[in-house]
Simulated assay, not measured.
Amino acid sequence: MSTTQSDRLRELLAPLVTERELDLEEIEVSRAGKRRMLRITVDSDEGVELDECAELSRLISEKLDATDAMGEGEYVLEVSSPGADRPLTEHRHYVRAVGRLVKFQLSAGAGGGDLVARILEVDEDGLDLEVPGLKGRKATGRRLAFVEIVKARVEIEFSRKDKKEEEA
């Protein structure tokens, strides 16, 4: 997909997404056999419900049908929220991951390698983390600047307490 088409789709669809207090995370056009696949990923601080995706899909479909943004030919539209394993790339992603365990790939200046830690707080410059202790040792705190992060991805925790459970 050309940058021009991507920009045009983003410009066309962003108002529909932001009207619903959602963030337009990604637009991807790919081939699926003879048809094209248009994947739109949206998110919010509270997450995205299935009904919200369905309603947004209907509105986006109407908008695309009323324009020539997708050109001629068939396409499949998919509107979804990001998966649990999506990379953290924006400041808002880190804010939404507060309390979650994250695997960081560190820059050489930060010692390189991987670090798994829980995000405690996020500010404009970086993160305050809790690094789990190994073999019965206590957890330790660590400060990590955004410039020290090469990649970051939330780790799936099957026994993690939900924020709602912790507040109760």
Score class of each variant (00 low, 15 high):
R92C: 04
V147I: 12
A108R: 06
F158I: 14
D51T: 03
G73K: 01
S2D: 06
K138R: 14
K138F: 10
D85V: 03
L127N: 06
V29G: 08
L9Q: 09
L88T: 04
D65C: 05
T18C: 03
D125N: 15
S44K: 08
P82N: 05
M37P: 05
I27H: 08
V17Y: 08
E121N: 06
A84E: 00
E90F: 05
F146V: 12
G83A: 03
D45A: 15
I119D: 05
H93P: 02
L120P: 01
L144W: 11
L12M: 05
G136M: 05
V79A: 04
E21K: 12
R35W: 11
H91M: 01
P132Y: 04
E19H: 02
L50P: 03
R31Y: 09
A139Y: 04
T18V: 13
S61L: 06
K135V: 13
V79R: 02
K103H: 03
E11W: 00
D65T: 06
G99H: 06
E78M: 06
D7Q: 12
A168I: 15
R31I: 07
L120V: 09
T41K: 10
A145H: 13
D68W: 02
A69D: 14
E19D: 07
A108C: 00
R58G: 09
L64T: 05
L64N: 04
T3C: 02
R96F: 00
L88E: 02
L134R: 13
A108H: 00
R86Q: 07
E19M: 00
D51L: 04
K135G: 08
E130I: 05
E78G: 05
R10A: 13
V150G: 01
E155D: 10
K103Q: 08
G111V: 01
V17A: 11
V48H: 08
A110P: 05
V98K: 08
L144H: 09
E78N: 10
V98D: 01
A108E: 10
S2M: 00
E121S: 08
A117Y: 03
